[in-house]
Design a binder for these strands. Structure first.
Length: 478
RNA sequence: CGAGGUGUAGCGAAGGUGGUAUCGCGCAUCGUUCGGGACGAUGAGAUCGCAGGUUCGAGUCCUGUCACUUCGACCA
């Protein structure tokens, strides 16, 4: 009964997960398609989620000493080309400006796909002494990557993100920063998005263009497919050498600083949808939900109902993001509407409730109805929001665990890759040939990461049988 | 980039063999309803993706083009 499918416009997840995703994105009014290839219009409800994410993360960054800046969106071609690996990685998906007004430009300008080069150019001018370090900058902006296949939030030609770019005196300090920021992401995913994930470092093949180390957070979507949910990179001194960024240390010796960068994007909204959503639509984790509680008056034409609902709204609005829907749609229509939009808690109040000084709370996750007294309504709502968060997290964790498999040898690996969606834990020799072979044979399974909490499943590579160096988590990705 | 598919009202669709466009949802107004997507009446809304061509006449036939989409390839 509680699980009964009540929303007819949304394709069932089991029927067609991709179609389900598109339906939810559209029906929940998160985005609209635009006339530009691969670009989405983020509608107020979708953008409000991003604003909540932004506020939360921004506070976490600032607490650790980071400062926000804004860089230009154009990168001269010569600047982009200074670091060889970097340009090779990004040039194929750059959009270029070649004309300004009526005139052809003497040098093409790339629309930033990421801003390492711009930060480096600036850091070269402002870093001279060890007293200038560390530099802990962050930028909120959009970037453009000319993708061939796009999907709302998951892969779009333009997307919103934050990119942190820091400079440090020592390798140790920079590595600590790289790890720390991945930890921030992991905490944020768990505490604010209710999403568990595997964290670790990327293999050589999957590293960021120009990075010495790339750390990643890899949540698993409901259908077992991975989403690269955020990355944190350690660059060593590679960019600094290419851009000639130096400082004088305490011993009056010229040194190269050590650099990091880290970012998360609107793709996280895709992760929320595909981790928590169900056949009735979106389910938003309470801490980033634009509407945490929706009040739906029952029999609202009767005297006193709207007044009582309005008073309740004013009271709750002191503690929560609340919406009162007093439109003349039917109550049933409203129920479905806000379920589709993933509002975590619904509050119903009608003549019967008013007479008994109570109201009805309904959890979006379980659909469980609870009659509570109006006297301690704030505590009751808070408790249900917390409960929704816990349930979402636990449900996602259960999904992650039940869809993570172990493979000892190649036959077992390919069998799982073919028949069981999810992650595969398997030992790896460290050779890129095995990564390539696995990708070819399985049709797209790639290494997600070498997890920080590495286990040892066996002594040999599950692909080639040679001595194993690491445990790797493998999977398909969006 | 390779192979297929689709473009008709805001959305989803119907429109054999050419004759100036139909239905459902949605939208607007009014009335009856109202504790799980209400019902009736009335009404507004489309130069049929775009550009050429054939024809007395093109949503329909021909050519070109653009966009979207599915499956591959590619995607730090």
């Amino acid at each position: 009964m509680a699980k009964e499918k009540m929303v007819e416009q949304i394709t069932s997840m089991d029927t067609d997960f991709a179609q389900w995703y598109t339906d939810v994105v559209k029906k929940a009014e998160l985005v609209d398609y635009s006339g530009v290839h691969g670009c989405m219009i983020i509608r107020p409800y979708g953008y409000a989620i991003w604003e909540n994410i932004q506020a939360d993360l921004d506070a976490r960054f600032k607490k650790l000493g980071h400062e926000n800046v804004y860089m230009p969106m154009f990168i001269p071609e010569s600047l982009l080309q200074k670091e060889k690996d970097h340009v090779n990685g990004f040039a194929p998906e750059c959009a270029w400006v070649t004309v300004g007004g009526e005139n052809k430009l003497s040098e093409r300008l790339a629309i930033r796909p990421t801003s390492e080069t711009l930060f480096c150019e600036h850091y070269r001018n402002i870093i001279h002494s060890y007293r200038d370090l560390p530099k802990l900058y962050n930028q909120w902006c959009s970037v453009v990557r000319w993708e061939k296949t796009t999907r709302p939030f998951l892969r779009t030609s333009e997307f919103l993100w934050q990119e942190g770019h820091t400079m440090h005196e020592t390798e140790e300090e920079a590595l600590r920063e790289t790890r720390q920021m991945l930890q921030v992401y992991e905490d944020f995913y768990r505490e604010s998005l209710a999403i568990p994930a595997i964290v670790g470092r990327k293999t050589e093949k999957e590293k960021f263009a120009g990075a010495e180390e790339t750390y990643t957070i890899e949540p698993m979507m409901h259908n077992g497919v991975a989403l690269q949910g955020g990355t944190s990179h350690y660059f060593g001194t590679g960019f600094c050498k290419a851009f000639d960024i130096t400082y004088t240390d305490k011993e009056n010796k010229v040194q190269y600083p050590h650099q990091t960068s880290w970012g998360v994007s609107t793709r996280m909204i895709g992760a929320i949808i595909m981790t928590h959503g169900d056949d009735n639509g979106l389910i938003l984790p309470p801490r980033v939900a634009p509407i945490q509680v929706v009040i739906i008056p029952a029999a609202q034409h009767k005297e006193g109902v709207l007044e009582a609902a309005g008073a309740l709204k004013d009271k709750l609005a002191e503690s929560f993001r609340v919406k009162l829907d007093d439109s003349d749609n039917s109550a049933g229509w409203k129920f479905s509407q806000y379920e589709m939009k993933g509002v975590p808690v619904r509050l119903e109040i009608g003549p019967r409730d008013i007479a008994s000084n109570s109201c009805v709370l309904v959890s979006r996750v379980t659909r469980e109805k609870k009659i509570v007294s109006l006297d301690n309504i704030v505590e009751e709502v808070q408790a249900m929001l917390d409960q929704v968060h816990e349930e979402l997290y636990n449900r996602a964790l259960e999904n992650l665990k039940s869809k993570t498999h172990e493979a000892k040898d190649f036959d077992e690996f390919t069998d799982i890759a073919t028949n069981r969606p999810g992650f595969i834990k398997a030992m790896w020799c460290g050779d890129v040939e095995c990564e390539d072979k696995i990708k070819d044979v399985t049709g797209g399974v790639k290494s997600r990461c070498i997890p920080f909490d590495e286990e040892k499943l066996s002594d040999v590579c599950a692909c080639c049988g040679k001595p194993a160096k690491h445990l790797v988590v493998w999977g398909r990705q969006y």
